[in-house]
Simulated assay, not measured.
Amino acid sequence: MKSDGTLHTGVVTSQSVFGAPCWVSLTTRDLRAAQNFYSAVLGWRWAPGTRMGEHYRVASVDGVPVAGISKTDFVAKTAVAWTAFFAVASADETVARSQERGGTTAVGPISLPPGRAALLADRDGAVFGIWEGDLVAGWERWRNAAPSFIRLHTRDAFDAAIFYGEVLKWATSDPGCCEVDYEENEVVLRSFGDVVARIHSGALGAAPDPALRPHWQVHFTVDDVEACVRAARAHGGAAHQQGIGSVEALVIDPDGARFSVTSRTAR
C-alpha cells in the first residue's frame, strides 16, 4: 500500500485489502458449455487455470483475470453457483472466528498456491469464500475489469453485518479494512471509498422473510444490459429485466447459476 492510502498496481496480497471481495468463482457441471455461454454474454476469454488442474478455467477481460470456473466434482461436489471470495489476512483465524459465531465450514482451509482458501457459510446458510495470499490480478485491476459489487440477500441485514464484520474484521482500526454504512435500507461496504458489497433484507423495521434463502449474488458491470439479456436467452439461459432500458437484469445460465448484470453507468 502506498503512503497516500491507495494501492500499488503490482502484486497485492489479501492482507492489503482484507475484508473486501477479491475474486468470484463458478462451479458448473459442464465447463465447455459454461465457457461458451459467458463468452457470448460477457465477452470473456478463457485460459486453463494451470495451478488448479484441467478442471479449472480462468476468464479474462482485456487480459485481466476476472473470474474462475470449476467443475462441481472438482471442488468437493459443491452446488452449481457463483461464489464470492473475501480477502483475509489469515484463513485459519477467519475460519475460527466464523465457527465461534455460528458459521459453518464446507471446505478448507486448503493450500492453493499462491495462497490458501476456504468455503464457509454464515449463520443463515449463505455461502462465501475466503482467500489468503497474493491476489490474482491485483485488487484495483480486478475491480475495474469485471464485478461491480456483490449483494447479500438475507433475513436480517443488521445481524448479518455483525457476523461478517466480526469474521472479516470490517470497520476496525487496522489500515486497509473496509468501512460500513447504512444507506437506503441496505448495509453498504466500502473499500478505499469504492462500494464493494451490499447487505439487503428489506425495509427498515420489516419482519424477516422466512421463505428467503440467504445468498450472495454477484453483479457484473456491462455496457449494454439489454444485449446481455438477448445473448443469455439465445445461448440457452434465461434473463429477467424489469423493463426496457433497465440498468439491471437477473441472468440464469444454462446450468442454473444466477448472477446479475448492471449497467456501467449505474455504478
Rank of each mutant, 00 (worst) to 15 (best):
G236P: 10
L250C: 09
G256R: 01
R233W: 02
A249R: 01
G237F: 03
G236N: 10
H240G: 07
G245K: 04
R233C: 13
R258T: 08
S263T: 00
G237Y: 04
T262C: 11
D253A: 00
V251C: 06
F220D: 06
Q242V: 07
A234S: 14
T262K: 03
H235S: 11
T221Y: 09
G256A: 02
A249L: 02
R230S: 13
F259T: 04
I252Q: 10
V225R: 04
V222E: 09
R233E: 15
G243W: 15
V251E: 05
V251S: 04
A257L: 00
T262S: 08
A227E: 15
D224N: 13
F259P: 03
S246R: 04
V229Y: 12
A234P: 05
D255H: 13
G256N: 03
D255S: 13
E248V: 13
G236H: 11
T221N: 11
R264S: 15
V251R: 03
G236V: 08
V229S: 09
A231H: 07
A238Y: 02
V261I: 08
R258G: 01
H235L: 02
A239P: 09
S263W: 00
I244Q: 12
V222A: 07
G245D: 10
G256H: 01
F259W: 03
C228H: 08
H235Y: 05
H235M: 02
E226P: 05
G245M: 05
E226Y: 11
G237C: 07
T262F: 11
G256C: 03
D255Q: 15
D253T: 00
V247P: 14
V247Y: 13
R258I: 14
S260G: 05
A249W: 04
G256D: 04
Q242S: 12
A231V: 06
E248H: 11
G236M: 06
D223S: 11
F220C: 08
D223P: 13
A227R: 08
V222R: 05
Q241W: 03
T221G: 15
E226I: 05
D223T: 11
G236R: 05
D224Y: 13
G236D: 13
R264I: 04
A239M: 07
Q241G: 12
S260K: 12
Q241C: 12
I252H: 02
G245H: 07
R258H: 07
L250K: 10
A231Y: 06
S260V: 09
V251F: 05
A249M: 02
E248F: 12
P254H: 01
G243V: 07
I252F: 01
R264M: 06
R230N: 10
S263D: 09
I252A: 03
